[in-house]
């Protein structure tokens, strides 16, 4: 197992390095110069002095490979540079928002597990009945529905619902409170984006659970269990589900890594100051250093999540560990 873990950790390095190369050189592929764009973005014509000062500040006048290695080198000593927009260190800008996004991501994953696994099981057990069709329709709708629209609908529903129930419109709180300070306030704010994101992501996991269950339910040992007269619920929950969960775990893990993408839009709808919003802001402000850092963070989350999923997988299935 130790050997397996070490091997997996080593495999993460080339992917991350590749992502760094990709991001860095793509950002440098912009026609013109980062500084030019930034100064031109302010609208007024800019003088060449300002351009030179800007380039000097950002180290853009140095050879490109030197720039690359000083950027990469910074990672090892915890120096991620400063935001070109706010001039604040990137680490502090990100850590401010990390908590919000992480909490939504975890809650959304939870929502998606709670929705997808029972629905996938029901759908597989009642295959080709109206229950199955309803579940599948529900999950296809989840893929087709943009999460920002679902967010708008949730806000609309809350407004109309609270108006009807209490006589005055209620909106989720606007100011973020950490969960250990005031759990009720915190959840009242973050449960809605988690629902909007989680529903969307449950769709893939539901499909996966359904098809994995269908496959397992055809296995010989399920037939044996039926033949010896076990109750159907025991067969489904004990014999089939345990073996069907492996691919589902993978899918949920990969989705967690991709949750960052969903958050970009959802945070905008609910006006949450999270990483997704920071990403959108940094893109629209031409804040290249911040965009680079955030893209790298997404790559890191992706790689780490895959690592954890693989470990979990190896733990669940000994055949992988020893191969």
């Amino acid at each position: 197992m130790h050997q397996y873990i070490i091997k997996r950790i080593l495999m993460m390095i080339p992917t991350l390095f590749g992502a760094a190369v990709l991001v860095f050189f793509l950002m440098r592929a912009i026609p013109g110069d980062v500084c030019e764009l930034r100064l031109a973005g302010t609208g007024a014509t800019f003088d060449p002095d300002a351009l030179r000062i800007c380039q000097q500040e950002l180290g853009l006048n140095e050879p490109i490979f030197l720039q690359f290695f000083s950027w990469i080198g910074g990672f090892f000593v915890g120096d991620f540079g400063t935001s070109m927009w706010t001039n604040q260190p990137i680490v502090s800008e990100i850590s401010l928002r990390f908590q919000v996004s992480m909490q939504i991501a975890l809650m959304a994953t939870l929502v998606s597990i709670v929705i997808s696994i029972p629905m996938g099981i029901i759908s597989a057990v009642k295959r080709n009945t109206w229950v199955d069709y309803c579940v599948r329709g529900f999950s296809i709708a989840g893929i087709a529905m943009p999460s920002f629209w679902l967010g708008i609908l949730i806000i609309l529903g809350l407004l109309v619902g609270s108006q009807a129930l209490y006589g005055e419109p209620w909106m989720p709180p606007i100011n973020y409170v950490p969960i250990w300070v005031d759990p009720a306030e915190n959840l009242a704010m973050l449960i809605w984006p988690a629902l909007a994101t989680g529903y969307r992501y449950s769709a893939v996991a539901t499909r996966m659970t359904r098809s994995a269950m269908l496959e397992v339910l055809r296995e010989d040992y399920v037939r044996t269990a039926r033949a010896k007269g076990l109750v159907e619920s025991v067969i489904v929950n004990r014999h089939a589900l345990k073996n069907a969960l492996l691919p589902v775990v993978t899918v949920i893990g990969i989705e967690f890594a991709f949750l960052m993408g969903g958050l970009v839009v959802t945070e905008q709808v609910f006006n949450l100051n999270g990483l997704g919003k920071l990403f959108v802001e940094s893109v629209s402000n031409h804040d290249y250093t911040m965009t680079q850092a955030l893209v790298m963070l997404v790559a890191l989350i992706f790689v780490l999540t895959n690592f954890v999923v693989d470990l979990f997988y190896a733990w669940l299935d000994p055949r992988i560990r020893y191969s």
Binding site: T15, A19, V23, L26, A257, F258, M260, G261, G262, V264, V265, F279, V280, V283, T291, V295, V298, A299, F302, V303
Partner: peptide, 11 residues
Amino acid sequence: MSFPLIIMALA
């Protein structure tokens, strides 16, 4: 492929 579609598109 290690980036979500929308992150890549935003970049």
